[in-house]
């Protein structure tokens, strides 16, 4: 084996991708809900690794923090609250498996064929060698983008910067903040313990 010829980027991509896909399959084919949750944790963690590889380090860390550290803890919390003996592993009957696997397989074939259909997507970036992921350094550009500055498009013409969609993401950011606040209040309202009038 010619160790020197290995593209380590691809090697680690394959590693993370394998973990992500295998454990995603684990989520699907396991019938124990707690194990499903654990497999999901590993799958999403490996996906965060893929994000790091693609140079999106902030998104990767966000994935670890919010998705894996927050959302999934919440999910497991829900699992434990409902983990009675008969709900821990619920079997699906064979016919449903067959149908969903056929549909899913067809869908997978479609998506994969689409993924390789565009030449631009399947040809590597010629600058990859000299670019290097370490220099991506994207945290502050992402932050500036969220408060309404597009520092990654500074080479554009004056008119283009003022075109719609070029002004950063301040507005969506604010909307999402308010949305999250509403979600928090709504979820807390729905999940609270209800005292029945009769009891």
């Amino acid at each position: 084996m010619l160790l020197a010829a290995i593209n380590w980027q691809t090697f680690f991509f394959a590693l993370f991708a394998l973990v992500a896909c295998v454990f995603a399959a684990g989520v699907v084919f396991s019938s124990n809900v707690v194990r499903m949750a654990f497999y999901l944790v590993i799958s999403l963690g490996a996906t965060a690794g893929l994000f790091f590889l693609a140079g999106a380090e902030f998104v990767g860390a966000m994935q670890l923090m919010i998705y894996v550290g927050g959302t999934l803890v919440l999910l497991i919390f829900g699992v434990m609250l409902t983990a009675q003996e008969r709900f821990v592993s619920m079997k699906t009957n064979g016919a449903e498996w067959v149908v969903s696997l056929v549909v899913g397989g067809a869908f997978l074939v479609l998506l994969v064929s689409v993924a390789f259909s565009v030449d631009d997507w399947s040809s590597p970036n010629p600058n990859q060698e000299k670019l290097g992921v370490v220099e991506a350094n994207s945290a502050s550009t992402v932050g500036a983008g969220l408060v309404g500055l597009r520092v990654d498009k500074l080479d554009l013409e004056e008119g283009d910067l003022q075109a719609p969609g070029m002004s950063g993401y301040l507005f969506p950011f604010v909307i999402i903040s308010i949305h999250l606040l509403v979600v928090l209040i709504g979820a807390a309202y729905m999940a609270r313990t209800k005292r029945r009038a009769s009891a």
């Binding site: 380090e57 670890l64 945290a139």
Partner: peptide
Amino acid sequence: NIAVFLVLAILGLEVFGVI
């Protein structure tokens, strides 16, 4: 360059072991 964030994110994963 996002070390603070990463430390907190990974530290938050310790809870999975306990759970």
